[in-house]
Amino acid sequence: MPDLGLDVLFKGKNMMRLLGGLGTALKISLTAVLLSIPLGILLGILMVRKELVIRAITRLYLEFIRIMPQLVLLFIVFFGSARAFGSDISGELSSVIVFTLWGTAEMGDLVRGAIISIPKHQYESSEALGLTSAQTYFYIIIPQTVRRLIPLSVNLITRMIKTTSLVLMIGVVEVTKVAQQIIEANRMTSPNAAFGVFLTVFLLYFIACWPLSLLARYLERKWG
């Protein structure tokens, strides 16, 4: 059997350090998710308003965030703002800010899509039955919007978890960074560690994201 360098994992606290790194990644992404959901719902509602100015501003925000690679956004917030405004925010906080900006934009677009996908006739047939417009939203529109939204937002959450691997570029020690550190520290004693360590990293991301993927697929089938 080839040497996969798995032995490194059992040296010292390496396995615990990897788990800790995963914890950091999840802390950043889930904090951002919790902030992005309400902000994204708000953004989505604004994006379907009739006022042109509001639509233009929200559209511009969405396009700006979309076009910009997440890594560049991280650099702007972490290095750029430190130089320009003399701010001194930690890498973790910078990451949460960037992921929230990004998550809000993507979530907003999902909410917008879900709202406009409800046909006008659904409002009309509900009102034709004598439901008030508040009842129409409560019983007809919101339940349908949420059903369309949940599978899509679960996918967004998994994307946000995966993308946290970028934050090592601004010095945040998350799971991928821990992996690099372990590999470098053991370069002499276990030259093959890269395979085993990154395999473990892969499994950790998989364990974090796979249940969400399953949940999304289940909900999609249930409500499809």
Binding site: P119, H121, Q122, E124, S125, S126, E127, A128, L129, G130, L131, T132, Y139, I140, P143, Q144, R147, W223
Partner: peptide, 29 residues
């Protein structure tokens, strides 16, 4: 809304509520 209870309307495209069962569609209003 009160007046509309006295007027039943059926649309070309049915417009049942997709998230409710047949029975719930009928009994909602």
């Amino acid at each position: 809304p009160t007046l509309r209870q006295k007027i039943g309307m059926v649309f070309q495209s049915y417009e049942l509520f997709p998230h409710l069962t047949v029975l719930d569609n009928i009994t909602l209003a």
